[in-house]
Design a binder for these strands. Structure first.
Length: 115
RNA sequence: UGAGCGUGAAAGACAAUCGCUGACGAUGAUAUCGUUUGAGGAAAGUCCGGGCUCCACAGGGCAGUGUGCUGGAUAACGUCCAGCGAGGGUGACCUUAGGGAAAGUGUCAUAGAAAAGGAAACCGCCUGCUUGACCUGUCAGGCAGGUAAGGGUGGAAAGGUGCGGUAAGAGCGCACCAGCAGUCAGGUGACUGGCUGGCUUGAUAAACCCCACAUGGAGCAAGACCGAAUAGGGAAGGAUAUGAAGUGGCCCGCUGACCUUCCGGGUGUGUCGCUAGAGCUGUCAGGCAACUGGCAGUCCAGAUAAAUGAUUGUCACCGCUUCGGCGGAACAGAACUCGGCUUAUUGAUCACUCAUAGC
């Protein structure tokens, strides 16, 4: 099932800081991906879109697209990773398929996908 | 048809698949299933005003701050409605921080002779005396006066225009206009209109100020509850029932015993507040209107790194088109909650005005 309940999403400020600080980072034009292993936050995910991206509407849009990317591809991701996705400025106004391709590209670089 | 002026509806619809928040129910044991619910006109800026919470259900005075034509609406307002005055526009209509300048103080640069209380003589105009010239009543100069008509400076020169008057002039006199004071009439009132009077008073109060009215402070990170919850403890310093501290300016009044700094240690980013309200819809009545009242119906987000989404298709809308299609669709995301204001922005409809043409 491709569900993503609230309990799987990072909530606390400290957790975000930890993944950002100690996780390995990969990036391309649209996204930045942080991956952290053996943290106590296994199989959790966080999404971030900074003030640079624009107002609340555009930031929300980017976050929702990132969440869909993770949700629809989570079966391919190996267990035990804590992932943080950050949107970059060029992701504003892009359609879903563009963002998904960017996400899959980063996932292959980080070798988080099974098979 | 063109230009304009007001008004300001609506903010694409439906379906499929996958997914999220809350509520309810079930299984059940913290997960799953089912039903249902889920952004705006500005949710924004945080600029005013209320509710609510705590401080004394907040009291007296001063200071400070705010408001400032009139009448009304309202829980309240700096908002709204209806008017009045002033200004702008051919007009529809728009703008308006619009109390007081004889309570007092200040400012009015430069220019100009003179810039504030009845001022000021630079040029000019007029009179008298006098000197010189000659064509013997004219010109030129000097002195003493009069004069605010004319010139020039300025944003503004001490009412304006005209007639009379005068040596020349002057509200010196008169008429009209503006203004002031009084009075009469109309209007709840701002004010408007008439009459009479004496003749005249600069601008600035978004300069201080005066007057009238209003105003205690902080804000949901308010505040309350929980198993230790601004805990409890140690050290240093200070104060002390002759008053610590609080009441976020001061005095009074009230409450009535601690306060500041450091050390060390632990525990929550818990639960409530948190959505039924000056609510929404319809209708009737009153009112020019803002709005008020009655009746009926209805329940309509409650998150907390923050749900309300993603993709696809069909039909509408707009633009381009080789008629196959392709592209576009604004501003913008609830955070205790209402009433406004302001700013951003797609945009009908309706009413009206002006110009031109036709009938």
């Amino acid at each position: 099932m491709l569900m993503l309940p609230k309990s799987r999403i990072l909530r606390r400020r400290i957790d975000f800081q930890r993944v950002h600080r100690f996780g390995k980072s990969y990036s391309n034009r649209y996204l930045v991906l942080y991956v952290l292993t053996a943290s106590g936050l296994e199989d959790k995910v966080g999404f971030a879109a900074g003030k640079k991206l624009g107002n609340a509407v555009t930031r929300n849009r980017v976050k929702r697209l990132m969440r869909e990317c993770y949700r629809l591809n989570q079966d391919n991701i190996k267990k035990g990773y804590c992932i943080l996705l950050v949107g970059r400025k060029s992701a504003v106004g892009k359609k879903y398929d563009v963002i998904e391709r960017a996400f899959l590209d980063l996932g292959r670089k980080a070798k988080i996908f099974g098979r």
